[in-house]
Amino acid sequence: MNPEPIVDIDSLTVKYHSRQGEVTALRDVNLQIGRGEVQAIVGESGSGKSTLLASLLGLLPASAAVEGSISVRAGDQPFDPVRAPAKEATRWRFRQVGYVPQLTQRSLVPVLTVGEHFRQFGFGSDWRAEAVRALTDLGLREPESVLRRYPHELSGGMAQRVCIALATFAGKPLLVADEPTSGLDPLVTVRVADLLLESQRRTQACLLLVTHNLQLARRMATRIAVFRSGVLVEHGPATAVLEDPLHPYTRSLIAAVPRPGHPLALPEPGPDPSGGLIEKAPGHFVAMVGAA
């Protein structure tokens, strides 16, 4: 049904072993994402979003046990990020993956200039020209002067654009956005969502958007996957999922977004699909990946 699947997740189960015992973070997840698609992953904290992201990027902590497989065809040949050795996964991400973090200055290394970010995060000798083009495309005046600045010398709007430019400038085929707009006000959220979409359309990258913001998913996503307690409870075209949700949990998520004229009433989200298997969230993606 998808045009050309870039990401193919096949019955993926991820468990963490800790001193407290075994925790299942993802259970039997099947998901395909095609070229040029924007796939939103929504769910509350502890639903397995971070683990899915870490699996896809080959950044699972050593304590994770994986069943099933992931295949990413974002290069010459398919790549399995959960099975590949760490060094190979690092090289693969360097060439194929653009990452859109939370869009603030804090996602930039405070001791490096913007230009050094492009040089370290990109490849090839032409990084400067490509960076200038990406920054110009995103509406930044005087991109050369932006490249010379340190993150604390950027305004909020400039930092957002720099982060988006970093993710998209090398034309990487897989884009991953992790709660990009958290902490931004609604107007700015809409603006950066549009900028991000524009960049994604230019490169025809496949964009995986992890968020708990349903409005953002509505604005950006072509398809939405709803996770709860490590289980993919609903997946389909964005409009279908949002207008006509099948799963009671999705209905309760949508109802939790306040709308004028509608009293905020939460429908029963249904039983926990993990059967109480998941007691503890493995933690936020940034902390999980940074500490490894």
């Binding site: 690092t90 973090p101 995060f121």
Partner: peptide
Amino acid sequence: ARLVRKRGYVAVARVYGVSE
């Protein structure tokens, strides 16, 4: 350094495939 690692930019660099 453990505190620094929990800040966003370390995860960002790692996802980008910047070497350890």
